[in-house]
Design a protein around this nucleic acid. Structure first.
Lengths: 194, 194, 194, 194
DNA sequence: GATGAATGAGACTTCATTCAT
DNA sequence: AATGAATGAAGTCTCATTCAT
């Protein structure tokens, strides 16, 4: 699907993000999506082959934006621990500020879509947010300061807690203040540091 | 809504677990479910008011079974760290051996259903489910050995990595051997211990 | 269908009358009917071949009871007008006191069932309530005092107003007191008297 | 709920009228309705939210058409009696010529739908429908020539016979010729005139 | 290129009827 | 004879997708 008007394509993706996050893939009819995007139903199909392709495209966009956010202010100058805490903090802040993105991603990775994607990531060096930023971190000089575990395990210890807590935060069950985020990040660091 | 024959009710729940795990709630039509359970469509409605109630009932069953598995061999005699490692190990083993249950739960907690339940668990003293086993642990004598963090944060640090890794394991992206599980559990412990 | 226990048969008919009147034929499932009658679903089918037969049987019962009520205190001694007013009054009183019966009959005559029955009534001298009581009246000595119209027209002029008003009364839109009923009956008499 | 093409909307209403009249609301599946209207099932739902709304909409249409027919040739010049006879005659002629409309209305007023409507008519000044034409008549100068009864009673005496007889006529049990209609109308007049 | 009315497969659910116990 | 669990056809409604304008 080639895009004729990037503006319109964006409107659709934006509307899709909101609807998917709020109602789930299966409770977001194309008709409603079109309405929210101020676009005719038929037009959506000029930009995306079908609903699945729309979902995948949205994932790519969201993933790219997330990656950008992750590496903000992660200077090489600062200590390894500080770098790590920075990454975790960036991740948490960004997703807390973008609950739609978070809900969308959770949903995505919990659906048939997600598994496919994960498998691909292993094979190709996919342009995917999280893993690449952290992947870079884990395979860099940090390696000396952290436990000699597989990348998968490290990812789990670093990411797991954040996503777990974010779920609760976004459902309104907890409030994430800076103190909490800091202690979370430090806990994660304790989990992986040598 | 519960009728006489527990056998048939069970057949339905079993079929539901498989289909929901493999295709998702929304891609598991009642007709297919009936077929898989060797039951007429209408029969399902003798045991469950509607699809939602079936999903909730399934959650209850799965949750109870999981809790039973969690507390296996967690003797009061062993050290706090050993208790914790035991809990994490039990959780991981059980869910790895029961991928359907895991996928179902992930899906459940990522849906409107789950949030409701979580909220309830906060208010009531959750009669079943993951949190109660760990909740018990965190509020017991272990408290002296672990960081003074909120229950939510502790849960996140303890559970987050496991569920994160399990997703990958169940997708076939990693293989969880006992060594890996042990280092994961120890990592979690490092994250929360004082 | 032969009746084994007239008691049970009656329970079923009574329950059917209530449910049909309150919810309509199509919103009165056999299961609910059974429950209300304190009888197993299957048992209903021992007394009535199917739902249709049950409805027809109920019609017969209701019709017979109505006919009995109609001829109460219609002595040959009193004047023709008084006889007529008596009939109308009886009809109104009875149906007002038995709204279930009225609603059932209205529904019955407004359905495919009713038309069938009416057609039969023309051919055979069916044991049917209303028409036979009034039929008898119209073809008796009263004929001299009333307009020389067809039986159908006379029926219409005599019955029409009553049933029309009863509908409103039973919906709660009007209250029928004795004065109102009297003026109604007199109006009907004015319509048919010579 | 009203979309662009009034043609298709009309086709649906026309088909609905036929099916509802012939088989009843509950024996006229949407699928059959669609077929009869030469329309896809889904299309019906573009024009009407659900079956109930379709039924209500149909009632509105039928009611408007009926009212138009009622007031034909009811000149103010003619006598009160003549006006009344005219109204009754119009009503009878129209409904005899439009049996579907008659059956539909009977069914409608005998269902939960109808009662609602009647109640509303009492409160508001009914923008359409039978009552308004006759209501107008009863509250006009005619009042001097007719009995001092409640509007409800007058309606009953005027309408009751007509609807009663029409039921039989439409079932084919009677044939309504002009003579019969005339004597019916005069009977009704005798019932209400002072 | 854009529009949105039309389509119809398919989802969920109900309920009259049967039949093993 | 009675029971009520089981059945599955059939009903209402939704929604991804197409296509004439």
């Amino acid at each position: 699907m080639t895009s004729a008007s990037p503006k319109k394509r964006n409107d659709i993706l934006k509307a899709a993000l909101e609807l998917f996050a709020e109602h789930g893939f299966h409770n977001a009819p194309m008709a409603q999506l079109a309405k929210q995007a101020n676009v005719a139903v038929g037009s959506i199909y000029r930009y995306f082959k079908d609903k699945d392709e729309l979902i995948h495209a949205l994932h790519t966009e969201v993933d790219i934006a997330l990656q950008k956010a992750l590496i903000r202010e992660v200077a090489p100058a600062i200590s390894t621990q500080q770098q790590f805490v920075r990454l975790i903090t960036n991740l948490t802040h960004y997703l807390q500020a973008h609950p739609h993105e978070f809900k969308f991603l959770e949903q995505y990775y919990n659906s048939p879509f997600g598994i496919e994607i994960k498998r691909e990531k292993l094979l190709t060096s996919a342009p995917s947010g999280r893993q690449s930023a952290f992947g870079h971190f884990f395979s860099g000089t940090a390696r000396e300061s952290i436990k000699p575990l597989s990348t998968h395990t490290l990812h789990a210890l670093a990411f797991g807690p954040v996503t777990f807590l974010l779920r609760d935060a976004i459902s309104g069950l907890v409030t994430l203040d800076d103190i909490l985020i800091k202690s979370l990040a430090e806990g994660c660091w304790d989990a992986i540091k040598k």
